[in-house]
């Protein structure tokens, strides 16, 4: 089954998917209503204006806890508080793509967020953006409704069930080519590239300390146990070395640098097409 949601194209392969269609749509709508910064009725829109204690369900708390792990491991470079900076740069809810005269700096976690076990307290209003791990999170909410052999693919961020699948790594410079193949089962792969959501001298992976796009890397892929982890790790790889992410979650990766060279985990499940072979 295929459809558009959360700003991308979804493709679900599963015998049970049609039967679960209503639940799948509800799960996606729930994520969108909570975390979208592109709609005025979302919780994120409220958090951007009203400091308060916001009760959240368990999976949303998990998402913020995961963000805190990434924040700590990357010394603040992966942060949900990048929303206002992104918006100022032009990637706002109206897609104006016009950078503001002044790009607001990104606050520290503790200035805004106090995370509890069933609620988050927003100490001062700020625009949150969960793009770094949010799509993966949404894919997980759908994947947990399915079992057996399945694939949930949201624009290249995917969860794969029991049956192993060969997934091509798309060359960001030429979409008719693959730079490699990975073989995975009961895992997730998420990819991130910077030449798609790009405008003027900006792209959408922004370094909160420089308030400028991350440099040097063209695309990353991360394979992990679930999509929330894989998506967050794929983002983190734009800012820190894989070594710095050890221990956060299972990780196999592939990084493509600006010059077209690639670095990948030495794992038999990953094949990179290099000039040597």
């Amino acid at each position: 089954m295929e459809f558009e949601a959360l700003g991308t194209h979804w493709w679900i392969e599963s015998p049970a998917a049609l039967k679960r269609k209503t639940d799948i749509n509800k799960a996606i709508e729930q994520v969108d209503r909570t975390w979208s910064r592109f709609r005025d009725d979302s919780l994120v829109a409220q958090m951007a204006t009203v400091p308060a204690r916001y009760p959240l369900n368990e999976s949303d708390i998990d998402l913020l806890e995961w963000y805190k792990s990434l924040y700590d491991a990357t010394d603040g470079l992966v942060t949900p508080l990048i929303g206002q900076t992104l918006s100022d740069a032009g990637y706002d809810k109206d897609y104006s793509l016009q950078p503001a005269a002044r790009i607001q700096p990104t606050p520290n976690w503790d200035e805004v967020i106090e995370l509890g076990r069933d609620a988050v307290t927003i100490k001062q209003p700020h625009l949150i953006d969960v793009g770094a791990a949010g799509k993966g999170y949404a894919v997980d909410q759908v994947a947990r409704l399915l079992d057996g052999d399945f694939c949930v693919d949201a624009g290249g961020d995917m969860v794969i069930g029991n049956k192993a699948m060969r997934i091509g790594l798309e060359d960001p410079r030429d979409h008719s080519k693959l730079i490699g193949v990975v073989e995975i089962s009961n895992a997730s792969i998420c990819g991130s590239a910077v030449n798609q959501r790009a405008w003027r001298d900006w792209h959408h992976v922004i370094n909160p300390k420089t308030s400028r796009p991350a440099k040097g890397i063209l695309a990353t892929w991360a394979i992990s146990d679930n999509a929330m982890h894989a998506d967050g790790l794929a983002t983190a790889l734009f800012f820190v070395s894989p070594k710095q992410l050890e221990g956060l979650a299972p990780l196999k990766y592939c990084i493509m640098y600006d010059d077209g060279t690639v670095r990948a985990s030495a794992d038999s499940s990953i094949t990179i097409f290099t000039e040597k072979n």
Partner: peptide
Amino acid sequence: VSRVSGASLT
């Protein structure tokens, strides 16, 4: 390959 992972869909 069965699927492709990238950022082709903006």
